[in-house]
């Protein structure tokens, strides 16, 4: 817009990168994630090890699970801020039902799914019926869910996960493949199927892209959106179970940070806030970017203030490359 002669080459280059990012958000995210890791290793050679890659892989998987539902909700034109609250509550339910015994896994699983579906249902109904921004409505619902968890647990959740369940998450096959990857073998195809092969998935894209057109095609827009929230709730609840499988003991609000983390991972993966655009492959790559970014900031051994400023600026830079809203003149 206001290019001077000096800035032109830089803006041109940036324009090219940005164009590539918008055409191939998944590939761009993969390049970014690997680039961040390469930079980390360049600065801190010790950061390159089988052990580290294995841990990073595991953290990426966990965030990508947490972001799966968020991806669907955003594609449908909504936003789910209850991801963190549901994950935390599911974690508390899991430990308090299992109490260190693997035999109770199915009970915990059933209760968590019910919880996720219920919160998702409330999210869906409230956002579609109230007509207020999904951000504010789901935030309020998430708050109530969190507060309720304090009442029920009196602030000190009890129990532990079963040992077999814990090792099904943290065990490393051949010393480096985290067992969590086995869950990905089930979850990834499931999410891909829902998004790209099922009728629901096709309708979801249409609803997000143009709700009016979807309505004219005879799609029940509110129903589709509500289902997307319910799936998101259930996926968040399951991720909460896996997360506590890793950490073994639960706490109130333990996964609250995942509300924002998942949102950023999804957006970095090329899903737009406007709805109707996005892929889960991109989200997985976006999760990797977030994990690599945090890993880099720790490896660089920065003080907290420098770390926070750097984190904010890098996020801005990444966002600049991606997902810019269309200008009024375009």
């Amino acid at each position: 817009m206001h290019n001077s002669a000096v800035l032109r080459p830089i803006t041109n280059l940036f324009g090219k990168v940005s164009g590539f990012a918008n055409r191939n958000p998944t590939r761009m995210a993969i390049i970014l994630g690997l680039g961040l890791y390469a930079f980390t290793v360049f600065q801190v050679p010790g950061a390159f090890s089988v052990q580290a890659i294995s841990t990073l892989f595991m953290m990426t998987l966990l965030l990508s699970f947490a972001s799966a539902g968020q991806t669907m909700v955003l594609i449908g034109g909504g936003m789910d801020f209850t991801v963190g609250a549901v994950m935390s509550v599911a974690a508390m339910i899991t430990t308090s039902i299992m109490r260190g015994e693997d035999g109770r896994f199915l009970q915990a699983f059933a209760v968590c799914m019910l919880l996720g579906a219920a919160v998702g249902f409330i999210n869906g109904v409230c956002t579609t019926k109230v007509g207020l921004p999904a951000l504010v409505v789901t935030l309020a619902i998430g708050n109530v869910v969190t507060r309720m968890s304090y009442l029920v647990t009196a602030g000190t959740p009890v129990g532990r996960v079963g040992p077999a369940f814990a090792s099904s998450v943290i065990y490393r096959h051949f010393g480096f493949i985290p067992s969590l990857a086995l869950y990905a073998l089930i979850l990834f195809p499931l999410v891909f199927y829902i998004l790209y092969r099922s009728r629901f998935g096709r309708q979801l894209y249409l609803v997000g892209n143009n709700p009016e057109a979807a309505r004219l095609c005879g799609i029940n827009v509110n129903k589709i959106k509500t289902i997307s929230y319910m799936i998101s709730g259930m996926l968040s609840a399951f991720t909460g179970m896996l997360g506590v499988g890793m950490l073994q003991a639960s706490r109130n609000q333990m996964f609250d940070a995942y509300a924002y983390q998942s949102l950023i991972a999804v957006v970095v993966g090329g899903t737009s806030f406007a709805g109707g655009v996005g892929t889960y492959g991109g989200t997985i790559a976006g999760s990797m970017v977030m994990v690599m970014l945090n890993n880099m900031l720790t490896a660089l051994n920065l003080s907290q203030r420098v770390r926070e400023i750097t984190l904010g600026l890098v996020l801005v830079l990444i966002l600049v490359m991606y997902n810019r809203r269309k200008g009024v003149r375009q």
Binding site: G46, A47, L247, A257, T298, A299, N301
Partner: peptide, 26 residues
């Protein structure tokens, strides 16, 4: 040899420690 912080957040404390181990700090 390394400084970090955890914001009194249990989960964040574990994540920071994982990242420190990733960095190969001895």
């Amino acid at each position: 040899v390394h400084e970090s912080f955890h914001d009194w957040n249990y989960t964040q404390a574990t994540e920071r420690m994982l990242e420190i181990l990733n960095a190969g700090v001895e």
